[in-house]
Amino acid sequence: MPDALIVGATGMVGRAVIDRFGAAPVTILARREVDGLASHHRQIVAPSEGWGDLVAAEKPSVLICCLGTTIRQAGSQAAFRAVDHDLVLSSARGARAGGTPHMIAVSSVGASAKSANFYLRTKGETEDDLVALGFDRLDLIRPGLLRGDRPGPQRLGEGLATIAAPLTDALLHGSFRRYRSISGDSVAAAIVRLAGQGGSGVHIHENDAIRVLAD
Protein backbone atom coordinates (compact mmCIF):
# COMPACT_ATOMS: atom_id res chain seq x y z
CA MET A 1 0.00 0.00 0.00
CA PRO A 2 1.17 3.57 -0.65
CA ASP A 3 2.17 6.05 2.02
CA ALA A 4 -1.27 7.44 2.87
CA LEU A 5 -2.31 10.40 4.99
CA ILE A 6 -5.93 10.68 6.17
CA VAL A 7 -7.79 13.83 7.20
CA GLY A 8 -11.28 13.44 8.61
CA ALA A 9 -10.36 10.24 10.44
CA THR A 10 -12.67 10.81 13.41
CA GLY A 11 -15.90 10.29 11.43
CA MET A 12 -17.61 7.06 10.41
CA VAL A 13 -15.95 6.70 7.00
CA GLY A 14 -12.55 7.87 8.23
CA ARG A 15 -12.46 5.32 11.05
CA ALA A 16 -13.59 2.59 8.66
CA VAL A 17 -10.80 3.54 6.25
CA ILE A 18 -8.23 3.13 9.01
CA ASP A 19 -9.66 -0.29 9.89
CA ARG A 20 -9.61 -1.32 6.22
CA PHE A 21 -5.90 -0.52 5.93
CA GLY A 22 -5.33 -3.36 8.40
CA ALA A 23 -1.65 -3.97 9.00
CA ALA A 24 -0.58 -1.26 6.53
CA PRO A 25 0.50 1.86 8.45
CA VAL A 26 -1.18 5.19 7.75
CA THR A 27 -0.73 8.73 9.05
CA ILE A 28 -3.74 10.45 10.58
CA LEU A 29 -3.96 14.23 10.83
CA ALA A 30 -6.66 15.40 13.23
CA ARG A 31 -7.65 18.24 15.53
CA ARG A 32 -7.98 15.85 18.46
CA GLU A 33 -6.46 12.51 19.33
CA VAL A 34 -8.10 9.52 17.67
CA ASP A 35 -8.74 6.86 20.32
CA GLY A 36 -8.08 3.18 19.82
CA LEU A 37 -5.55 3.41 17.02
CA ALA A 38 -3.27 0.42 16.44
CA SER A 39 0.34 1.04 17.35
CA HIS A 40 1.58 0.81 13.75
CA HIS A 41 -0.42 3.90 12.77
CA ARG A 42 0.91 7.39 13.34
CA GLN A 43 -1.15 10.41 14.26
CA ILE A 44 -0.46 14.12 14.18
CA VAL A 45 -2.72 16.28 16.36
CA ALA A 46 -2.73 19.95 15.38
CA PRO A 47 -5.08 22.92 14.91
CA SER A 48 -6.67 22.83 11.47
CA GLU A 49 -5.21 26.23 10.59
CA GLY A 50 -1.83 24.59 10.09
CA TRP A 51 -2.92 21.48 8.22
CA GLY A 52 -1.83 22.66 4.80
CA ASP A 53 1.78 23.11 5.90
CA LEU A 54 1.76 19.81 7.79
CA VAL A 55 0.46 17.86 4.79
CA ALA A 56 3.07 19.52 2.58
CA ALA A 57 5.82 18.51 5.02
CA GLU A 58 4.58 14.91 5.21
CA LYS A 59 4.63 14.46 1.41
CA PRO A 60 2.23 11.48 1.34
CA SER A 61 1.80 9.40 -1.79
CA VAL A 62 -1.96 9.72 -1.44
CA LEU A 63 -4.12 12.14 0.52
CA ILE A 64 -7.43 10.65 1.68
CA CYS A 65 -9.99 13.26 2.71
CA CYS A 66 -13.05 12.10 4.67
CA LEU A 67 -13.82 15.55 6.08
CA GLY A 68 -17.49 16.41 6.29
CA THR A 69 -20.05 17.92 8.61
CA THR A 70 -23.62 19.17 8.42
CA ILE A 71 -24.95 22.70 8.60
CA ARG A 72 -26.76 21.77 11.80
CA GLN A 73 -23.60 20.39 13.38
CA ALA A 74 -21.48 23.30 12.20
CA GLY A 75 -24.01 25.87 13.38
CA SER A 76 -24.14 28.00 10.25
CA GLN A 77 -23.60 27.88 6.51
CA ALA A 78 -20.33 29.77 6.93
CA ALA A 79 -19.04 27.29 9.51
CA PHE A 80 -20.10 24.39 7.30
CA ARG A 81 -18.25 25.82 4.31
CA ALA A 82 -15.16 26.40 6.45
CA VAL A 83 -14.89 22.62 6.91
CA ASP A 84 -16.34 21.09 3.75
CA HIS A 85 -14.69 23.51 1.37
CA ASP A 86 -11.97 25.60 2.99
CA LEU A 87 -10.33 22.92 5.13
CA VAL A 88 -10.56 20.34 2.36
CA LEU A 89 -8.89 22.78 -0.07
CA SER A 90 -6.25 23.81 2.46
CA SER A 91 -5.26 20.17 2.96
CA ALA A 92 -5.30 19.54 -0.80
CA ARG A 93 -3.15 22.58 -1.55
CA GLY A 94 -0.66 21.37 1.04
CA ALA A 95 -0.57 17.98 -0.64
CA ARG A 96 0.10 19.54 -4.03
CA ALA A 97 2.82 21.75 -2.55
CA GLY A 98 4.46 18.63 -1.15
CA GLY A 99 4.28 16.81 -4.47
CA THR A 100 1.47 14.37 -3.61
CA PRO A 101 0.23 12.92 -6.92
CA HIS A 102 -3.03 11.31 -5.80
CA MET A 103 -6.02 12.49 -3.76
CA ILE A 104 -9.21 10.67 -2.80
CA ALA A 105 -12.02 12.86 -1.46
CA VAL A 106 -15.45 11.92 -0.10
CA SER A 107 -18.08 14.22 -1.57
CA SER A 108 -21.83 13.60 -1.98
CA VAL A 109 -24.28 12.28 -4.54
CA GLY A 110 -25.79 15.25 -6.36
CA ALA A 111 -22.78 17.51 -5.83
CA SER A 112 -22.84 20.37 -8.34
CA ALA A 113 -21.56 23.91 -8.30
CA LYS A 114 -24.78 24.86 -10.12
CA SER A 115 -27.12 23.33 -7.52
CA ALA A 116 -29.71 25.54 -5.85
CA ASN A 117 -29.11 23.58 -2.63
CA PHE A 118 -26.36 25.16 -0.51
CA TYR A 119 -24.99 21.83 0.73
CA LEU A 120 -24.73 20.29 -2.73
CA ARG A 121 -23.46 23.54 -4.26
CA THR A 122 -20.67 23.70 -1.69
CA LYS A 123 -19.75 20.08 -2.38
CA GLY A 124 -19.72 20.78 -6.11
CA GLU A 125 -17.58 23.88 -5.74
CA THR A 126 -15.16 21.88 -3.61
CA GLU A 127 -14.94 19.22 -6.31
CA ASP A 128 -14.29 21.84 -9.00
CA ASP A 129 -11.58 23.48 -6.93
CA LEU A 130 -9.89 20.12 -6.29
CA VAL A 131 -9.89 19.37 -10.01
CA ALA A 132 -8.27 22.75 -10.66
CA LEU A 133 -5.33 21.85 -8.40
CA GLY A 134 -4.12 19.38 -11.01
CA PHE A 135 -3.47 16.16 -9.11
CA ASP A 136 -2.12 13.40 -11.34
CA ARG A 137 -5.08 11.34 -10.17
CA LEU A 138 -8.17 12.58 -8.32
CA ASP A 139 -10.90 10.21 -7.13
CA LEU A 140 -14.17 11.86 -6.07
CA ILE A 141 -16.42 9.57 -4.01
CA ARG A 142 -20.13 10.43 -4.21
CA PRO A 143 -22.08 8.12 -1.90
CA GLY A 144 -25.78 8.34 -1.14
CA LEU A 145 -27.06 8.22 2.44
CA LEU A 146 -24.35 6.66 4.59
CA ARG A 147 -25.38 3.79 6.85
CA GLY A 148 -23.39 2.77 9.90
CA ASP A 149 -22.47 3.72 13.44
CA ARG A 150 -21.43 7.33 13.66
CA PRO A 151 -19.19 8.60 16.45
CA GLY A 152 -20.72 11.39 18.50
CA PRO A 153 -24.33 12.59 18.77
CA GLN A 154 -26.95 10.84 16.66
CA ARG A 155 -28.23 12.90 13.72
CA LEU A 156 -32.02 12.62 13.99
CA GLY A 157 -32.78 13.19 10.31
CA GLU A 158 -30.17 10.68 9.17
CA GLY A 159 -31.37 8.18 11.77
CA LEU A 160 -34.91 8.31 10.43
CA ALA A 161 -33.69 8.14 6.83
CA THR A 162 -31.59 5.06 7.66
CA ILE A 163 -34.62 3.30 9.14
CA ALA A 164 -36.58 4.03 5.96
CA ALA A 165 -33.65 3.15 3.66
CA PRO A 166 -34.67 -0.43 2.76
CA LEU A 167 -38.02 0.78 1.43
CA THR A 168 -36.61 3.92 -0.17
CA ASP A 169 -33.77 2.04 -1.85
CA ALA A 170 -36.21 -0.43 -3.40
CA LEU A 171 -38.01 2.45 -5.11
CA LEU A 172 -34.88 3.92 -6.68
CA HIS A 173 -34.11 2.50 -10.12
CA GLY A 174 -32.25 3.52 -13.25
CA SER A 175 -30.43 6.81 -12.89
CA PHE A 176 -31.90 7.18 -9.40
CA ARG A 177 -29.93 4.17 -8.11
CA ARG A 178 -27.11 6.52 -7.23
CA TYR A 179 -29.30 7.97 -4.46
CA ARG A 180 -29.59 4.62 -2.68
CA SER A 181 -28.06 4.29 0.75
CA ILE A 182 -24.68 2.62 1.21
CA SER A 183 -22.69 1.47 4.21
CA GLY A 184 -19.78 3.54 5.41
CA ASP A 185 -17.68 0.38 5.44
CA SER A 186 -18.32 -0.17 1.71
CA VAL A 187 -17.20 3.38 1.00
CA ALA A 188 -14.08 2.79 3.09
CA ALA A 189 -13.29 -0.46 1.27
CA ALA A 190 -13.57 1.34 -2.07
CA ILE A 191 -11.28 4.13 -0.87
CA VAL A 192 -8.57 1.72 0.27
CA ARG A 193 -8.73 -0.14 -3.04
CA LEU A 194 -8.41 3.14 -4.95
CA ALA A 195 -5.44 4.12 -2.80
CA GLY A 196 -3.54 1.18 -4.24
CA GLN A 197 -4.36 1.94 -7.86
CA GLY A 198 -2.19 3.82 -10.27
CA GLY A 199 -3.29 5.72 -13.32
CA SER A 200 -4.23 9.31 -13.89
CA GLY A 201 -7.16 11.61 -14.49
CA VAL A 202 -10.28 12.62 -12.59
CA HIS A 203 -12.60 9.78 -11.62
CA ILE A 204 -16.10 10.13 -10.13
CA HIS A 205 -17.46 7.14 -8.24
CA GLU A 206 -21.16 6.90 -7.36
CA ASN A 207 -22.98 4.12 -5.51
CA ASP A 208 -22.82 1.28 -8.03
CA ALA A 209 -19.16 1.95 -8.82
CA ILE A 210 -18.36 2.21 -5.09
CA ARG A 211 -19.93 -1.21 -4.48
CA VAL A 212 -17.93 -2.77 -7.31
CA LEU A 213 -14.71 -1.38 -5.87
CA ALA A 214 -15.66 -2.54 -2.38
CA ASP A 215 -16.23 -6.09 -3.61
Results as ranks from 00 to 15, higher is better:
V212L: 14
G22P: 02
E206A: 11
D3M: 12
E127K: 07
D139G: 10
R81L: 01
D53H: 13
I28L: 08
A190E: 00
G159E: 04
A82W: 02
L194N: 05
P25L: 05
S61E: 14
L54V: 13
A195P: 05
M1N: 07
L160Y: 04
G157E: 14
D129V: 06
M12Q: 15
L37M: 14
A92Y: 07
A30P: 01
R93K: 14
P143Q: 06
R121Y: 01
P166K: 07
L172R: 11
I6H: 03
L120N: 07
L160K: 10
L130M: 10
G144V: 05
I44G: 08
S112E: 02
Q154N: 11
P101V: 04
I44C: 07
L172P: 00
A23P: 07
L167D: 06
I182N: 04
L213M: 00
T162P: 09
S115G: 05
P143A: 05
D84W: 03
A16Y: 02
A189F: 00
R32T: 15
L156A: 13
Q154R: 14
R42C: 08
D149L: 14
A161W: 13
V88R: 05
R142F: 13
R147T: 12
S91Q: 03
L133Y: 08
R31H: 05
G174I: 09
G196E: 00
G134Q: 05
I18R: 00
P153M: 11
T162W: 11
A105N: 12
D128T: 14
P25V: 06
G134S: 06
G22Q: 04
A113S: 11
R137C: 03
R72G: 14
S61Y: 11
G68H: 08
R72K: 15
D35T: 13
